[in-house]
Nucleic acid binder design. Structure first.
Lengths: 204, 204
DNA sequence: ATAATAATTTACGATCCGCTACATAAATGG
DNA sequence: CCATTTATGTAGCGGATCGTAAATTATTAT
């Protein structure tokens, strides 16, 4: 009926929608963080019983991994677009910060970054899964900067990571979009000056 | 013998040192965060049994409150000193960031800020206790800036909170002192330019 | 119809959690 | 010496949590 892909398989059909379940889990994880969400919470939110949960997802960490994939495919910051622009580097990086902030503040019930906050959990597996996404983003930023300013790339990568972690935390602490944007732009001053000075140095 | 204050009280004397116990709890809370430390962990680290724990501290949250007091008295950033200096505002604020970073990176086994990280926990009571310290620090920064630049104070307060949360997170993520210091100084550029521009505006 | 497959429901076992009851030990006050 | 007070150790209760075993139900294949 609903599934276009993979025509009728053998046994009893699943009575809940997989993507809806992952979406419900995503809302929970985003709102409370990985550790604070119990399997019981997930089961209740999805509306199924434990055996269905474990049969469908394997474990809480595996489900979280699916949530991250879903997020990457739908809600994540389009780093590739923002960084491939032919604008000045600092402008691109500030655009990343601003775009991040818009997402962090979009849902007051699930403030901050799903990935950054998820990486702070105690579970090794979930931490690794979220950490992989973070590492990928950091490497994208590194490569983007290193293409033109190899010496600055490492330090800018650290700076971007730190600022985004801070912005995510502040979003969780109730800062609204305007406050977060102001903070992000203030953080952008350091970026602008870094590359402005660098350009001066080259022109000398 | 050991206690100079309050000569011998009535009943059986306590067989463990209160401050040592609080110190052990502080190490645990700082290393793992509030939520990830169980009462069983604390009891084991202190070397006592549950009844002694509850008799002495009341609850995990109460003990955490004691830990925060101990931290404020010993390990916290001396905001009053750093901000009362007659140096330029931006310099003072950068000094705060640098001093913070030194503490965040001091113990690799307990990286980041005890208070900032503690405020992220799920327990309402502990969150409130840590939050009070954060609010006090934020207000100190606000007042310091507002004394000379009332219009900028709120935004600078947000910025400082965000950067410090980010630095604490990066410390937890393994950034060493040098990397953190570089990040803090880059964050300082935004502060310097804010007040440099402001001064220009006045002189016009 | 019967077998095979897979999801669902109910129920439960194992573990850990925070916390306390109870009896005991070690000190002081009369 | 006895009462009082306070801390300690053992043992365990009630609850939550994760995960699974067993029987049941719904669907497809032959």
């Amino acid at each position: 009926m609903e599934h276009t892909e993979s025509r009728r398989t053998r046994g009893r059909p699943r009575q809940f929608d997989l993507d809806e379940a992952v979406a419900a889990a995503q809302r929970l994880f985003h709102a409370r963080g990985y550790d604070a969400v119990s399997v019981a919470d997930l089961i209740q939110a999805i509306g199924i019983n434990p055996p269905s949960f474990y049969a469908a997802f394997g474990s809480k960490a595996d489900l979280y991994s699916r949530v991250l994939d879903r997020y990457a495919a739908q809600g994540a910051i389009p780093l590739a677009d923002l960084l491939s622009a032919d604008r000045p580097i600092a402008e691109c990086l500030v655009a990343v910060l601003e775009e991040a902030v818009r997402r962090y503040a979009a849902d007051p019930g699930a403030a901050g970054c799903l990935v950054i906050e998820g990486a702070r959990c105690a579970d090794r597996e979930a931490k690794g899964a979220a950490g992989a996404f973070i590492t990928a983003a950091e490497e994208a930023i590194y490569r983007f900067v290193a293409a033109r300013y190899p010496d600055q790339a490492a330090c800018i990568q650290d700076y971007m990571s730190t600022v985004m972690a801070g912005l995510s935390a502040s979003a969780r602490n109730g800062h609204n979009l305007d406050r977060l944007l102001a903070t992000a732009r203030l953080a952008g001053v350091g970026l602008e000056q870094t590359f402005a000075l660098n350009r001066q140095g080259r022109e000398k």
